[in-house]
Amino acid sequence: MLAFMTRRVAYSLLILLGVTLITYLLLYMLPADPARQIAGRSATPEVIANIRHQLGLDLPFYQQYFNYLKGLLQGDLGRSFIQRSEVSELIGARLVPSLQLMGMGILFELIIGVGMGIIAALKRDSFADRLLMALSFVGVSSPQFIAAMLFLYFFAVKLGWFPMGGYGEFRHILLPALTLGLLGSGWYSRMVRSSMIEILHQDFIRTARAKGLSRARVVFRHVLPNAIVPVIPMIGIDIGIFMGGLVVVESVFGWPGIGQLAWQAIQQVDIPVIVGVTTVSAVAIVLGNLLADLTIPLIDPRIDVKKH
């Protein structure tokens, strides 16, 4: 177990190094110039050069990146170009709302996705199956910003079922979380469906039925746990895709999370904030995958992390 964890942490550090390098490099090569953004339209070249020097943007790429890494090792994510405050503070203030939204979103995603998958698998080739699978297809292929706007328009503006936006009460989180859940559930429903169908044909399901177990018991005790095993690593991977959704949905619903922060930072070419958010997201993804890997052995006794 110790060896497994050590190895995983070592890999994770390598991944994080790669993520920061790529993000930094991409932003370095970006034609947008943060110094010009800060200085404004009417600034003289001298002023811009001055700002650039102050921010250390005139250094060669490797030095900039090296300085950033040095700061990162001391827990310093740098300072925002625009807001002039610590990036770690900016992110820290927004981390909790984002985690709340993410948790609720994944919960909805799983409830909707797994539920749809079970129904579709049990009613295979029926009208219900085709309808659910068509819906899941619409879900995974609709662009998040359009879907989020439409939901906001229909459910909040027209029907008034949910508040328009805001943060603080439970009712505020429902619509953004449902939006994320509905849009992401398509992958899960398809995966659970095919996994369930495969398990339904397994010999041990026939055994369970031959024992005289009720249909509900066969489905929930024998089929579902087996069908869910391949879905768990998917959740770990999904966190990455989820972060993308978070940026859009938080911006549309005005949710004070790191997605919104990222959105603003991208518009202002606020490089330290962008890199900071990316790094935090990468950490979240790595942690999510580690958590998934540690959860699977609890469900499937055949998988032993010590052997990997």
Partner: peptide, 28 residues
């Protein structure tokens, strides 16, 4: 009916299958 059949299965009529390697639930 299926419900009565369930009570017969395993109680009055038992069955064993060909493939012992795959006939038991791996998670229980």
């Amino acid at each position: 009916p299926e419900r009565q059949m369930q009570h017969l299965r395993g109680q009055a009529i038992g069955m064993i299958f060909q493939e012992p390697m795959t006939s038991l639930n791996p998670l229980m």
